[in-house]
Write a protein that binds this DNA or RNA. Structure first.
Lengths: 185, 185
DNA sequence: CCGTTATAGTATCGAGTCAATACCAATTGA
DNA sequence: TCAATTGGTATTGACTCGATACTATAACGG
């Protein structure tokens, strides 16, 4: 029981270490998170609303963060054809290049040093914990498209998949991105 | 493929979930971290400098946060006898009571749901990772007094320990607190 | 069709974080 | 004794963040 308390303390500490990494290159932790999200999310999820749900913040806050990133030339907004209310977000070349200097690489390096079994256990444990927290909070999983129950593999020919929920064709590359709507198969 | 990369993404997500918990009762995430630190740290470490090292921030920032907490009546400052520069920090009764509403309990709840083996593996993994990151960054461990190489158990009689580094007697309760100076035995 | 309601996003405000810089007072030490 | 170090505060500017209020587009129900 108190072992759980210790675990919580360690997780708290780890979280602080992670946000500490987020102050490189004049950006803020949340701005890095936004860039990383936009690099990983599919076109249905690269919107202010998607980012808001991912970060668990209010839309006003996220709107401000995106304005800052747009002013800095790291993110581009384009109107969403088909829904005049919605905005499509994309990393600019500068935004993508910025990710090469992502401080989270430090965490990756610290991970590499650990024995393979510890890494595997850690991965499984964090995955289970994230799922568990999201459950408690009824948050979205933001899992990978391919692992979704709405995903129809090769429904339109070789390498041409389909999303039954959004009724949209999916290219091979998109199947590996994260999606707002994802629900485990 | 890059299983480590996925782990880093999960850790990033977990860190975000943790900071999301930090907005209860009108406090900010960092303020909660300060309260938790002050509840766990021994008297040698309950100073602005100790908190600064723990959080990995600059001393100016921490000074501001402490002023806010002091104004809110959650933290008390007293002069440190023996060193006129230093300030001793203590939780007030209100500060200690505030910790009963700590949002990190949500993480603890999410943890409880997991199978015991997963919890144990997670604990070991996070512990190893935190250590590894601190190593890379040459940060202090802030481990528990009793597990320090400067700790002399029962050096002054039953339940009366001693710190060889600070040359100070330690009561039983203090042996379980975290310390700024801690170095693994 | 038209009005109601829901959805996507922006505007503004106030409190606070945060790094950077500059600063002060007490301590250390050559 | 007088410089360097250490512990902490003050100030500034950019930004986060929740709250609230607002606009515009879309969906729906009669």
């Amino acid at each position: 029981m108190d072992s759980d308390g210790k675990t919580v303390e360690l997780i708290e500490r780890l979280a602080r270490l992670v946000t500490n990494e987020g102050h490189a290159h004049g950006l803020k932790p949340v701005q890095w998170e936004a860039l990383r999200y936009l690099a990983r999310a599919n076109r249905f999820s690269r919107t202010p609303g998607g980012l808001t749900a991912y970060l668990g913040l209010t839309k006003g806050t996220v709107s401000q963060t995106l304005m800052t990133l747009e002013r800095a030339g790291l993110v581009e907004k384009t109107a969403n054809p088909g829904d005049g209310r919605s905005v499509r977000l994309d990393l600019t070349a500068a935004g993508a290049a910025m990710l090469d200097h992502d401080g989270m690489a430090t965490i990756g390096k610290a991970l590499e040093v650990l024995p393979a079994t510890v890494r595997a256990d850690l991965h499984a444990g964090v995955e289970a914990l994230v799922r568990s927290v999201l459950d408690l909070r009824s948050g979205r999983a933001f899992g990978i498209c391919r692992e979704c129950r709405h995903f129809a593999a090769e429904a339109r020919g070789p390498g041409l998949h389909y999303c039954r929920l959004l009724q949209a064709p999916l290219e091979e590359a998109e199947a590996g991105q994260i999606c707002q709507e994802q629900e485990a198969a």
